[in-house]
Design a binder for these strands. Sequence first.
DNA 1: CCGATCCAAGTTTTT
DNA 2: CTTGGATCGG
Length: 734
Amino acid sequence: MVAPFDLDSLNPQQREAVMWPGGPLQIFAGAGSGKTRVITYRIARLIQDGVNPSRILAVTFTNKAAKEMRERLESLLGGKVRSLWLGTFHSLCARMLRIDGEKIGLSPEFVIYDDGEQLAIVKDILKRMAIDEKSLQPRAALNEISRAKEQMLDPTKYEEQASGYLQRMVAGIYPEYQTRLARANALDFDDILYHAVRLLERAPEVLEKYQDRFMHVLIDEYQDVNFTQYRFAQLISAKHRNITIVGDDDQSIYAWRGADVSLMLRFSSDHKDAKVITLGQNYRSTKVILQAAADVIQHNRGRAEKELWTENEAGRPISVTEAGTDEEEAMIVADAVLKAVRSGRRKYGEFGVLYRTNAQSRAVEEAFLTMRIPHILVGGQRFYERREIKDILGYLRVILNPLDEASIKRTINTPTRGLGAGSIGLFDEWSRARGLAWWDAIREQSVQSQLPKRALHGLQQFVGLVEEGRDMMQDNSVTEMLEYVMARSGYLDSLKQDRSEDSISRLENLQELVRVTQQYDETADEPSLFGFLEQIALIADTDQIEETGEAVTLMTLHSSKGLEYPVVFLIGMEEGVFPHSRAIGNEIELEEERRLCYVGMTRAREELHLLHSRRRSMYGSANFNRRSRFLDDVDLSESDSLVPQKQPQAPFRDLRQDRTGGYAVTLVETPKPKGPAWKPPFTVGERVQHAKFGIGVVISCSPVKGNDAEVTVAFPGVTGVKKLIQSFAKLETV
DNA sequence: CCGATCCAAGTTTTT
DNA sequence: CTTGGATCGG
């Protein structure tokens, strides 16, 4: 049989990984080493060699990765591979629980509670238990519960081992938290994994069924698995022992949410006969970029020793640029993008701008807006986390499952129906006192009789809406249900009344949600409200992002993992920003920051530009940050800059330096520059008027002879960036 | 009960 | 600076 794919195009290590017959296999896949290709080829090869696709289990980190992999496989094999189990840990485990969860007492119809709902429950419990949110932050408690589930600790076991203030407090809420979920027939994200493992451990016949079935198990991004996922992988592959794991410890950047690299690094000791293959050739980046990334990562201890090399050309030098302010930093990026695009060398889609925190995107967005640079912003406020979206979906969830207490609470008085804290408290009391579900409690005659008139009317509205919705469910599309809910709840009207910018954007988002359901109704095999809600519960926004190719991408370093751009700007290379202030002083966290830096740098194919700013506004006040230690790791003897650099000055050297290494210092007074007072005619970012070019934005001002100023101004459109001498140009502030 | 106003706090994020 | 929560007056 002729190979449907091109093995000759692979290097020896890649080929070995693809062809390796079976048994435990660990693939160390460095950045840009063709990892995805290897996994896809390996699956295709197995199928081609006669393994039934239904007997392969492949796990990816995101839904997007799963989707892409399936598409690649289908094009390699020239047909659908629907029976292949391919997805994220969560989607696969959820699937398993829907099929077999009953054997450990789970209803197959459970709903999935997301982060927001989890948090709401914790807050609610805290309030009920009269615990001040200051003494126990809901977020911290939730994290701790999550950690517990990742360790497979149920509330009882958790309490036994709890020590310290936080854990003892959490031991008090964890049981109640689980009770609430159970009452709503809901699982949170961690429960999905937890119960899947429990299912395999407690139900021998189920374990055997899946162990038999999955002859081959492949897991990508193994450096980011947590203990439950590890356990799941171990259990399910124990029979045939054909488990392939792929990962790169240098790219482990999710320890803060429970991922544990050591689970990957112990693979060889778990499996004495494990075959280890290292993919060391990088096909993505230039030598210069790869070297810089290596310079940074080599400072970490305890990494698996391996080196990445490339046959690519040396390429252009790294650039390091110091900007005066964060706005200027953004303008420099915008300017560089514009120059390259205008010269015809680049398209907008070839640039990625990466930063440590979402807040940093603002300055860049503003600069791009003024310079008319098309861009897409990844992350930030996520679509499905937006209030209006959650509210409306909340209605749909109540209709689907009236036991969903969190969703009832969310929607019952949204928009306001006169059901305030008093009424809510009453319902709560009733449901607790008689062990009634909320949905039943609110419909009790004796409860309703205690309500004020207005509240009663509101409640009847709400109950009527839900009941009618339940009747409609069978015969209406998801879109129709959505439109029904938006209209009948009065949600649309209340938004339309208010003409604020905020409401307009909320209406637009709901419009977008309608498009999502329309799409779903058209494409799903058997569209249903249940199916729709399930799908979006497990899907992330980033999964939806399409590469349009015509826009610069702005995103955090974390979301850049797995992506690549010909030109990468890494902005905010400052102590306190990157590495983040919370990591400074903590060696473990600093190592994770360094890996994050490594990830960011290795996203670049041809050009890497590192920027930092002397002054940065954070939370409304000015910060003067030393440049990032990561810059000190890199050999910059060959580096250049995006704009001519001012003489390095040290006006801040006398600032207090922290003993751990000196970092972000908030300055109270503005430092006095030394030397004769030259006053820039404009501030950076200021809008100015030019006789011929019109209105532009000041990028920088520098002194020239005769107490004159050279002003660099960005004008929109074809004019672009101009350097102007103030005495001739006569720029005026607008 | 609800809207206005004041105040404190502030990574990263997938599922 | 922004946002979410708490508090206060109508």
